[in-house]
């Protein structure tokens, strides 16, 4: 038999066995992974809106409209109590120092930020990671206005100020961009 053909066949055989093994492993692990990822997003938003009894994703056309005008918003979930919408959970993404920062911002129907939760980040430990490690950071967003752009300051007091992390400017600015992206989406699409 032609040598190249034989070599090709052997390689193909090895690749086929490998693909088979991986397909099997995928069957087993994919559902577990999907569960965990769903837990991750619904778990976080349920913590922000404890009074809600149901969560539903925002209608696709509206989400696409938002995404077309906004680089940060990835997903929007409606928090419902009965038939009434009591707020929105916006999943936003921006680029930090060590990669993507994905956060969940909760905005209620009165235009106030009621929740801020970093879902995923790989910022430098003890520096940028303070957006997660330092509870004062997340707290500085609660109750703030979701109808104007927010700015980081050393001692946040006004409606549009949140805590700046000294020495972690890149991470702070990334979060600022993402939060303001959520604010934009709320003001232009969700509050009407």
């Amino acid at each position: 038999m032609n040598e190249t053909l034989k070599l090709g066949l052997i390689l193909f055989l090895v690749a086929a066995v490998s693909a088979g093994v991986l397909a099997f492993a995928n069957e087993v692990t994919a559902p577990i992974i999907a569960e965990i990822e769903k837990q991750g997003s619904f778990g976080a938003i349920a913590e922000i809106f404890p009074e809600a009894d149901d969560f539903q994703p925002l209608e696709e056309e509206k989400l696409n409209e938002i995404k077309a005008s906004n680089n940060f918003v990835q997903e929007v979930t409606k928090a419902l109590k009965g038939e009434e919408i009591i707020g929105y959970g916006l999943k936003v993404k921006s680029v930090g120092y060590g990669g993507d920062i994905i956060s969940l911002i909760g905005i209620n129907t009165e235009g106030r930020i009621v929740g801020f939760n970093v879902l995923q980040m790989s910022e430098t430990p003890a520096v940028g990671s303070r957006i997660v490690d330092d509870p004062a950071f997340a707290e500085s967003f609660i109750g703030k206005s979701a109808t104007e752009k927010l700015v980081p300051v050393e001692n946040p007091s006004a409606d549009n100020e949140f805590l700046a992390l000294s020495g972690a400017t890149v991470s702070t600015t990334a979060v600022q961009a993402a939060v303001n992206g959520a604010v934009d989406a709320y003001v232009n699409y969700l509050s009407k």
């Binding site: 492993a25 995928n26 994919a30």
Partner: peptide, 12 residues
């Protein structure tokens, strides 16, 4: 829907 083969296909 065989994204899990990404690593192996890419390196090949």
């Amino acid at each position: 829907h065989i994204e899990y083969l990404q690593t192996i296909v890419f390196i090949l």
